[in-house]
Design a protein around this nucleic acid. Sequence first.
DNA 1: CGGCGTTTTGAGAGAGCTCAACATCGGTGG
DNA 2: CCACCGATGTTGAGCTCTCTCAAAACGCCG
Lengths: 206, 206
Amino acid sequence: MQDSGQGQRGDWLPPSVRDAGVNRALGPGDFLFRVDTPTAGLFEVIKGRIKLVRIAPSGRETILYTASAGDFVAEASSFSPTYHCDAVATTDSVVRLYPKRSLFAAFRENPEAAQAFMGMLAREVMSLRTRLEQRNIHAARDRVRHYLTLNAGADGRTVILSGTLKDLAGELGLSHEALYRTLADMAADAEIERLDGKIRLKSPDV
Amino acid sequence: MQDSGQGQRGDWLPPSVRDAGVNRALGPGDFLFRVDTPTAGLFEVIKGRIKLVRIAPSGRETILYTASAGDFVAEASSFSPTYHCDAVATTDSVVRLYPKRSLFAAFRENPEAAQAFMGMLAREVMSLRTRLEQRNIHAARDRVRHYLTLNAGADGRTVILSGTLKDLAGELGLSHEALYRTLADMAADAEIERLDGKIRLKSPDV
DNA sequence: CGGCGTTTTGAGAGAGCTCAACATCGGTGG
DNA sequence: CCACCGATGTTGAGCTCTCTCAAAACGCCG
């Protein structure tokens, strides 16, 4: 996140693959792919939301992941002959498919492309682990601190908010009300300063 | 997790790389590596715990990730010239270093090795995303259900517990007491059946 | 038999969630 | 230009649920 968050998420894609991408529009409820069908390649969500779900024998639906604009879907499935879950659009969405063939061709012909892909995945792993670690922090205030210190810019104390606070609340796993309150409290305690679209950590402490 | 959880975590490593691995022991507080120093390669935690931390200018320590036996550390850093955080052992630990050079040599000479590595990373991404999604489920019971349905074995309703329930509680992000209680409630409601080291989901519902 | 860690159960308190009302800010259209 | 509307931002109050602290039963191993 902190690494790949800025700039195009697909920076690492070699032009040959990028050009081979095909867009596809889906309406709410449309399947992007279904379990046990052959895999097509790597999908990038351009717009909307795609949920990956597994249906238990009991009929219960278990959500594996919800992808939003900018996210990739089916990285792992690209290495598998068939899909292991269903992918369904929950809103009007647009996805871009990078066919498996062009992807692997690029990797084979261009080791740097492969390396870039690995690097992207590795950074994604790191980012996800960090977010998971964050969820182990129970106190809202500590969780917000964790986020702010990790996402501070070059000066080490200014965080630029990319989306709305509501979005941030979702990423932090807090209700938006809890986030507002926490931010208000921290500002009241002069721990942070709230600028337009930015949050600045006030003086070091401890 | 459900994919890579079983079997050796390093299955994907080609023998040439595996053989080039070097073990190293650390005591509590020992640094495995420090921020801004040149990267050595990929580490596998054989025993103990390694925490990745970033020290904010304020001196505050932010934990990025805590790796336990079987986990890999510094996947992303392998693609970077220097480390972006510190790695410190929190207990007596043993790690195994797979030098960058042997790793990339293997990737270059053996496309399948590269592909295996990518597949491993991609599965890890998937697993982490799923765990993150799980943390969005607030009710303990629903969270346990999510875990059980996703980790059911071939029959779709039996989950083999790999560690203790306490460990499971940690993975689920619940206190162990909360997990015990939830499991007891679910058993009382005949939603699950508790066998020795296993949990079986009872009849489909809904 | 005597620890030691896991598994259980109990009770209380606190923190965040939910529901609700309201303020604010852009954008839209009359 | 202003009224309207929807989404974001903000604050209030109650409630539920999990966490924490405690204590005890259980199982395993030396």
